[in-house]
Amino acid sequence: MSCKAIMTVDPPVLYPTDTVGEAVDRLLDERVLALPVIERDRRYIGMFAKSRLFGLLLPAVVASESTVPSMGTIPDLDFLREYLPEMQERLRAIADHPVSRYVDKTVPVLHPDSPVVAAVLQVFRTRNFVPVVDPQTGRLAGLISTWDTIAKIRTAS
């Protein structure tokens, strides 16, 4: 069984000119944790994911921990007890920015013919959503979610 069999063919998407505010609305409406960002001709650019969004709400040095995890980290942020207004301010400040500024282009992509185990591996490696891209055209072919994968594995004959 290949990824083609388990992917969602017409997933919700974002365009580079969509604003962060619109992207957040879409994440909330669709109840998803990441959305693919594509050109108007459906060429895949990258993912706009909750990890990047949440990172923008935190102090920069904390948000960048994931990029160099071995470097100094702050055990927790409990000392920022009354940080809600700051986070709201941060969210407001980026609401009009185009999502193209925050696209994660490092997310590994799969091809429609990639085996399902490749999707399982990516989901295992904490990716909740894995983009499937046509290797010839570079266009988004579909999206594999955690739910797609586990449901198909359970029911496939």
């Binding site: 040095v61 904390v62 100094g72 702050i74 920022l80 700051e86």
Partner: peptide, 15 residues
């Protein structure tokens, strides 16, 4: 020492 003190310094300066 700097690995422990610098990250929180950067939070303070950012705020």
């Amino acid at each position: 020492t700097v690995l422990l003190v610098v990250p929180v310094t950067m939070v303070i300066t950012e705020e």
